[in-house]
């Protein structure tokens, strides 16, 4: 979804809920619901980047919804990644369910394919590495106070500046790490309304949730991704139980389905070839 229609959607829906709870005696509480279980499904999260770091695949299984978040890891799978010159590289299992290889470095414009052979099933996917987008700089700004805001609950805007390449469709994901902890929620961007512009993406850092201290290191990875990965993250946001990008997965979603995936054989997850551009900033008040 486009960055700014995403903002619009968020704002319109927030307005809704603000206004509803303003006027009416509405309330929110945790309730017991009975959900039927589901056979564990295979989840393959795989990627190749251009920065010389390892190409990796993580293979796990799903679990029933109200069970604790412990996900079975799938070992002894054969994971092979191919480039478009016909070369193949096999990933080695470095930890339970985690496979890696450092023999291949991705290049913009190339198409990569991957084959995973796990538990007697074969899964294939393909991804093209898009043009690199460079992160120009970062800045921090104090956000206006919210109603009833208390000490220590301030919010900050993290500004991410970059230039959108004109005349091409561009998709990005931002991975933001605060003191080595990755923020949850898939923060994504599309240039549908902003093609070719100087972009300032504003991420809200909420001290209520993050506990920011002076001197904290905030690192940002700007990943340039292909449309398939963007579609995955976009649809995954509506089923994401955590993070500010998804308000949990709601019963009001109009098209409640599992995220679109580029795996061919009913695997969850996706395979993505992406470029990385990094920067960091120190948090000061």
């Amino acid at each position: 979804m486009k960055n700014h229609t995403y903002i619009i959607k968020e704002l319109m829906l927030s307005l809704f809920f603000i206004s509803l709870s303003l006027v009416f005696i509405s309330c929110e509480d945790v309730i017991e619901i009975e959900l039927t279980g589901v056979d564990p499904a295979i989840v393959i999260e795989a990627g190749i980047s251009d920065d010389g770091s390892v190409s990796s695949a993580i293979i796990t299984k799903s679990t029933d919804f109200f069970e604790p978040g412990v996900y079975e890891k799938v070992s002894n799978a054969i994971v092979v990644i191919n480039d478009d010159d016909g070369n193949s590289y096999q990933m080695m299992e470095v930890d339970d369910g985690e496979y890696q290889t450092d023999l291949i470095t991705g290049q913009s414009g190339s198409t990569y394919s991957i084959e995973v052979n796990a538990e007697g099933q074969i899964y294939n996917a393909e991804s093209s590495m898009p043009i690199k987008i460079v992160l120009d700089s970062l800045s921090l700004e104090l956000a206006p106070d919210r109603p009833n805001q208390e000490e220590g609950e301030e919010r900050y805007f993290l500004h991410i500046y970059f230039k959108d390449p004109p005349e091409i469709d561009n998709y990005c994901r931002f991975k933001i790490t605060v003191e080595e902890e990755l923020l949850t929620g898939f923060i994504i961007y599309e240039d549908k309304f902003t093609d070719g512009n100087d972009i300032d993406v504003r991420i809200i850092l909420d001290n209520k949730e993050l506990d920011l201290n002076i001197g904290d290191l905030i690192e940002v990875d700007l990943l340039s991704i292909d449309k398939a990965a963007f579609d995955f993250y976009n649809t995954a946001n509506s089923v994401n139980t955590a993070g500010s990008s998804g308000r949990g997965s709601s019963s009001t979603s109009a098209a409640p389905t599992n995220p679109v995936t580029n795996w061919n054989n009913k695997a969850l997850g996706f395979f993505s070839a992406y470029t990385v551009s990094q920067d960091s900033i120190i948090f000061e008040k």
Binding site: L35, G37, P40, A41, D64, F65, G69, F186
Partner: peptide, 16 residues
């Protein structure tokens, strides 16, 4: 409603 859930990059996703 979701029947299950799984993990991608630290995010818990509902499974329908």
């Amino acid at each position: 409603f979701p029947s299950g859930k799984y993990n991608i990059d630290g995010n818990t996703l509902s499974l329908y």
